[in-house]
């Protein structure tokens, strides 16, 4: 396993001195996880592997943008992998259009009075949260993240009223806020 601090150190080593050994360690840990995560949505192994490889190369390119005060390595790499998956899906649908990676800059750079201290969050804390969600809430969250479906598509698939899906999402987000707030305050 790789602790959040170790993972952050590896990304900073890439930024500071193009450290290929650090990249290899990061790749060993995250490339298979990105691939497995992408495959959960029904993506074939070959495409998921391409997403994983492209995402980790993006980690190398953008290592200097990583800020351990803003996000953990897992969150940052998740965001990059998500964007790579989106880019790949759009390219498949419309080969002529090159999309920008604007989603990677989802937060502005300016000083933020409300600066995030979520970076210290670990897998354990969120795992506890997921364990505490009702099965109804969990299925909506999983369909969103694993299958990249919108809440509207999820409501259609589960044959549920839109309002029911919305209230499940809001309840789950309330729980997420509670679970993470301990560290934010």
């Amino acid at each position: 396993m790789l602790s959040p601090d170790e993972a952050a150190n590896l990304i900073e080593a890439i930024a500071a001195r193009r450290d290929r050994a650090a990249f290899a360690s990061l790749f060993r840990h995250y490339a298979p996880r990105v691939k497995a995560f992408i495959m959960r949505g029904g993506t074939d192994a070959e495409t998921a592997q391409e997403v994983a490889q492209e995402a980790l190369i993006m980690v190398w390119r953008k290592a200097a943008s990583f800020d351990r005060g803003r996000a953990s390595a897992a969150t940052w790499i998740y965001t990059i992998a998500r964007n790579k998956r989106i880019d790949l899906a759009r390219r498949a649908a419309r080969p002529a259009i090159e999309t920008e990676d604007w989603l990677t800059v989802f937060a502005p750079e300016e000083a933020d009075a409300d600066k995030s201290v979520l970076a210290g969050q670990t897998y354990t804390r969120v795992k506890e949260l997921l364990g505490g969600l009702s099965a109804d809430q969990l299925v909506v969250i999983q369909k969103a993240f694993f299958e990249d479906k919108t809440h509207t598509a999820i409501a259609e698939e589960l044959k549920l009223p839109l309002g029911t899906v919305k209230s499940r999402i809001r309840l789950a987000l309330g729980r997420l806020r509670e679970a993470l707030e301990k560290d934010e305050s």
């Binding site: 937060a107 979520l118 969050q121 969120v126 993470l180």
Partner: peptide
Amino acid sequence: RRTVERLGVLGGALMEGEGEVP
């Protein structure tokens, strides 16, 4: 932004939680 950051933590944790994969 804070809500999206929290969701990013959740997404990262779901990805981190992928078990032993070849």
